[in-house]
Simulated assay, not measured.
Amino acid sequence: MTITATEAVPHPPPGYDPPLWLVTMPTTDATGARGEQTFAVRAVTHAAALAAAESTAFAHPALRHRRGAHIDPSAAYATLHH
């Protein structure tokens, strides 16, 4: 299930733990092999989850994990983790 927020959401109160989202992005390595990399992020909205995962996707640990494979954040999808 994919949920898209259309209205601004107020900032959560202190101590609030935002929902956990699993954001998956397709990858392609130098040989053309395809795969996926999934990021677990906490965010209040669908858009915020995608943005958080995109910034994480280009951090050093994620780059090292992909071993040079190209990632396509524009094709990412996010689902709420229950």
Rank of each mutant, 00 (worst) to 15 (best):
P73I: 00
A49R: 07
A62E: 10
A47R: 04
T45Q: 03
A69D: 09
G32E: 11
P10Y: 10
V9K: 07
A5L: 00
S74M: 02
L80N: 01
P18M: 06
A48L: 13
P18V: 11
T4C: 04
A43D: 04
G35S: 14
D17L: 12
A49S: 08
A69W: 03
G15P: 08
P10I: 12
R34H: 13
A52G: 12
P73K: 03
T27K: 06
R42M: 12
E36K: 12
Y77V: 03
L80H: 05
S74V: 00
T45W: 03
T31F: 04
L50E: 08
P26L: 12
L50V: 13
A62K: 09
A78G: 05
V23Q: 05
A62N: 09
H11K: 11
T79D: 14
A30I: 04
E7S: 12
H70M: 02
T45D: 03
P19Y: 05
L50I: 15
T24P: 05
R67I: 02
D72V: 02
E36L: 08
L80P: 01
I3L: 14
S55F: 01
H81V: 13
R67M: 07
A33M: 07
S74I: 00
A78K: 00
L50G: 04
I71H: 01
T24C: 09
Y16M: 09
V41W: 05
A57D: 09
M25G: 07
S55C: 08
R42T: 10
L80K: 07
A76P: 03
V44C: 09
E36G: 02
L22I: 14
A53T: 01
P61L: 06
A30M: 03
A52S: 14
P61V: 09
P13C: 09
L20V: 14
F39Y: 14
L80F: 06
P26S: 08
D17R: 12
R34S: 11
A5Q: 14
A57I: 04
L50N: 08
V41G: 10
F39C: 02
P14T: 14
E54S: 11
T28Q: 14
A57V: 06
G15K: 02
A78F: 01
G68R: 06
H46K: 02
H70R: 11
F39V: 08
A76Y: 00
T28V: 15
V23Y: 01
F58K: 07
R67L: 04
F39E: 13
H11Q: 13
G32I: 06
R66I: 08
T2I: 13
